[in-house]
């Protein structure tokens, strides 16, 4: 039963990532693209967690944690750069 749920979840997250990619390519402003990248990272974390459940392994949690950290730092650095023209002043 968990396997079927994992398959459905993987498909849903794949479609969600495609929608996010649409916004990433289309987005009228830079900030739309930054938001789309952030959402893409969130979708990836969800995908990693689902695949970890599917393969019955705890190995992927460190990956998910690293993705969360890198995604946060990327988004904040990009926003800071847009605001001030500099990342660290």
């Amino acid at each position: 039963m968990i396997d079927i749920a994992c398959i459905i979840a993987t498909a849903a997250i794949a479609i969600a990532s495609l929608l996010t990619l649409y916004r990433l390519a289309r987005g009228p402003d830079v900030l739309d693209r930054i938001l789309a990248l952030d959402t893409l990272v969130i979708n990836t974390i969800g995908l990693i967690v689902v695949i970890g459940l599917w393969f019955r392994t705890t190995m992927y949690f460190e990956t998910a944690l690293l993705f969360a950290m890198v995604g946060f730092v990327t988004t904040v650095a990009l926003c800071k750069y847009l605001l001030r023209g500099n990342v660290i002043e």
Binding site: C6, T10, A12, I13, A16, L19, I42, N43, G46, V50
Partner: peptide, 12 residues
């Protein structure tokens, strides 16, 4: 899992 996938989809 299904609820989580649904909300990820709705967010995107």
């Amino acid at each position: 899992i299904l609820v989580g996938a649904f909300f990820l989809f709705v967010g995107s």
